[in-house]
Design a protein around this nucleic acid. Structure first.
Length: 102
DNA sequence: AGTGTGACTTGGG
DNA sequence: ACCCAAGCCACAC
């Protein structure tokens, strides 16, 4: 496993319940500001096998980055279960829930 | 080897 | 608010 990948995984695992991080933020924290898509791929490929909390990762607009209807529903349900409140337009307030890596 | 695509981001009009 | 172009990078065909 590459260093970048490990960093990304660690960062995601370090997100406390009720908080979220954006792809770009994770990528930057992991050392590659332009690696948002890489983060996406990692999540997509490892969440299934490693039980990563993919639901705590959203796009820069505070919206669930998912094309699948079921996936979005699941993620919303999981986040709400952790205390995250969604706005009327289906977004979450990043100013409140964004987890900064210290 | 070349091309297209995506669970992205940022910046400009 | 919305749409679009460019940047970046791994993977599938």
């Amino acid at each position: 496993m590459q260093p970048f990948t490990k960093r990304v995984v660690d960062l995601i695992l370090a997100i406390p319940p009720g908080r979220v991080m954006t792809y770009g933020q994770i990528a930057e924290a992991a050392g590659n500001r332009r690696g948002a898509r890489q983060v996406v791929r990692i999540l997509h490929s490892l969440s299934a096998s490693c039980g990563l909390p993919w639901h705590r990762v959203v796009n820069a607009q505070g919206r669930i980055a998912f094309s699948d209807e079921e996936g979005r529903f699941s993620q919303r349900a999981l986040l709400e279960a952790e205390g995250v409140v969604f706005r009327a337009d289906g977004r979450i307030d990043l100013a409140v829930y964004r987890h900064t890596e210290l």
